[in-house]
């Protein structure tokens, strides 16, 4: 059983928005990991994960967020999550992610949070 997963990257001001689409599981997580790593290596530490089209996330997918959050924050940036579908949010919520990550209802809100300087969670 293989499912598709796609990442699209765009700029919103000086914030990079990564739109995640489909199933983020052990199979597809390496691609997401590579994408985030590329951003951080390129000096772009202000990231927003647009989860509006993310249908599923497994522990391997969650692990990617964990792997890079400290690095992004240490560099003065952050990885914020936005527009998470309810059933995916439930997974984040059970795990206690809302206490650790800045999760916003929309991408605009998440981008705006960078602007207001309230980025350290």
């Amino acid at each position: 059983m293989t499912r598709s997963f796609q990442i699209e990257t765009r700029n919103d001001g000086n914030v990079r928005v990564l739109s995640l689409k489909g199933y983020l599981d052990a199979h597809t997580a390496p691609r997401f990991e590579a994408a985030v790593e590329e951003e951080l290596r390129g000096g772009r530490h202000r990231l927003v994960a647009d989860c509006s089209e993310l249908d599923y996330i497994s522990s391997a997918g969650l692990g990617v967020f964990m792997t890079f959050i400290d690095e992004a924050r240490a560099a003065g940036g952050d990885i914020k999550l936005a527009a998470i579908q309810p059933k995916v949010y439930q997974i984040f919520d059970v795990l206690g992610f809302p206490a650790l990550f800045d999760i916003q209802p929309t991408v605009q809100d998440a981008v705006a949070r960078f602007g207001s300087g309230a980025q350290e969670g």
């Binding site: 964990m66 059970v94 795990l95 206690g96 992610f97 206490a99 650790l100």
Partner: peptide, 29 residues
């Protein structure tokens, strides 16, 4: 610690309740 909330079934009412105290998964931070 970030785990799926346990389910408690009460014999008196025949109803279920989720037990979900706050908590983060081990190793997340």
């Amino acid at each position: 610690a970030g785990h799926n909330p346990p389910l408690l079934w009460r014999a008196r009412t025949g109803e279920c309740e989720w037990r979900r105290p706050r908590g983060i998964g081990l190793g997340l931070t």
